[in-house]
Simulated assay, not measured.
Amino acid sequence: MRTGRAAQVVAEADVVVGYGPYVDQCADLLRPEQELRRGTMGGERERAEDALELAVGGRRVALVSSGDAGIFGMAGLALRAVAELSDDRRPTVEVVPGVTAATAAAARLGAPLGDFATISLSDVLVPWEQVEARVAALAATDLALAIYNPRSRTRTWQLDRARELLLAHRDGATPVALVTDVGREDERIEHATLADFDAERVAMRTLVFVAGPGAEQVGPWLVASRHPPATG
């Protein structure tokens, strides 16, 4: 899933820089004469600096992310690096909107987003205590939640802890959807509830969607009410 502008700038770039699998997902847009620079997981800062150096040298560079570059993506790192340059060296920069997992998953589920929040459970760059405080605060609201980076091979308990925090405020029958690899060939959607969803079925590329209190099942679709019930 791409915006038209995102496809255009990748196709027109002299150099495409990004995490290897994300560059590969642009394969249908790439030209033989383009230079490709595939990075590895964890090298985000180096990729941003590499892209900036190329742009300062006069190349047209596309620094790609999956989803939307401004939502848990590369835009923040790149803009911080650009801002450190003097005006005479600063290249023209455009942050191109993409399709983030929250809205891509929501479209598959129906129309479940009204007021909602996104949160990442990754504690690689943020202390877990801070992540947990955010989850606890959101649990007490009536916002639908789109949970990014919920679980990985090494982070196996944080999602269960997030569920505990949510269940302290929300009904166990709250609809939950596990949407994995949305928009990709191996896309998988599983419906459950907050009390009984299987955390073992969740991977790094899974978006865990927790419905708000106004959502209801309308035929095969999950639909958010525009007038959710009052609480208190």
Results as ranks from 00 to 15, higher is better:
R2K: 00
R2S: 04
R2N: 07
G4V: 10
A11C: 12
D14S: 09
G20E: 08
G20A: 12
V23D: 01
L29W: 13
L29Q: 10
L30T: 11
E33M: 05
L36K: 07
G39D: 06
G39F: 15
G39E: 01
T40Q: 09
M41C: 11
G42A: 01
R45W: 12
A48F: 04
A51T: 03
L54S: 01
A55G: 05
V56S: 12
R59C: 02
R60G: 06
V61K: 10
G67D: 02
A69V: 08
G70W: 08
L77I: 02
L79A: 06
R80W: 00
R89T: 05
P91C: 02
T92Y: 10
V93K: 14
V95E: 00
V95L: 03
V95K: 08
V99Y: 14
A101P: 00
A105I: 06
A106K: 15
L109V: 07
A111S: 08
L113A: 07
L113V: 12
L113G: 11
F116D: 09
S122W: 11
V124R: 06
V124I: 13
V124S: 15
L125K: 15
L125T: 08
P127F: 15
V135N: 09
A137D: 01
D142R: 10
A144G: 14
I147Q: 04
N149A: 01
S152R: 09
R153N: 14
T154F: 11
W157N: 09
R161M: 00
A162N: 04
E164C: 13
L166K: 06
L167V: 02
A168E: 11
T174R: 05
V179G: 04
V179F: 11
V179N: 00
T180L: 00
E187R: 03
E190H: 08
T193L: 05
L194A: 14
D196L: 00
A199M: 05
M204V: 01
R205Y: 04
E216L: 10
Q217N: 07
Q217G: 11
G219R: 13
L222Y: 01
V223D: 10
S225L: 12
R226W: 07
T231K: 15
